[in-house]
Design a protein around this nucleic acid. Structure first.
Lengths: 67, 67
DNA sequence: AAAAAATAGGCATTTTATTGCCTATTCACT
DNA sequence: AGTGAATAGGCAATAAAATGCCTATTTTTT
């Protein structure tokens, strides 16, 4: 699970929902600046930040055993 | 996915591997202080920190659609 | 029961994510 | 092509995570 991968997942999901970065950031309760960085694979977000975004998109973060 | 849940998953996995916090922290490349906080559900770790720990334990962080 | 090992958490410091403000660039629509 | 919306990213300030040092408590081992 890399940053860029999460960013892409979030971006695709957001676009499929036809939501702007601005709207998603507001719904998730984070700044658009942070959302932008995450979608572009920059930085190293806090778990809570990711959870907020994912929740706003109907996504969930899970921990699984590597097979 | 809540903090306390991740902490418990990590702790259980670590114990099943018979590894101490000290050892796991060193293997993961983070401080024992941070690992301790995460296992006890305190704080709000960075994604990279979680990834390091999970990797050291053969665990993976995933994003899934909520059913 | 005693000793050693492991875990817990307070606190100050350092490092880094988040944020806001700004302008530039790209995209979508008429 | 032109216009407005959306996205991108630099930079400084702020907020918060990570770390190190310390002692206390709990757990394990002998």
């Amino acid at each position: 699970m890399e940053l860029i991968a999460i960013g892409e997942i979030i971006r695709e999901r957001r676009k499929s929902r036809k939501v702007t970065q601005d709207d998603l950031a507001e719904i998730a309760g984070i700044s658009i600046r942070t959302l932008r960085d995450i979608e572009n694979g920059m930085g190293n977000p806090e778990l809570e930040t990711l959870v907020k975004i994912c929740h706003a998109l109907g996504l969930e973060i899970k921990v699984e055993v590597i097979k």
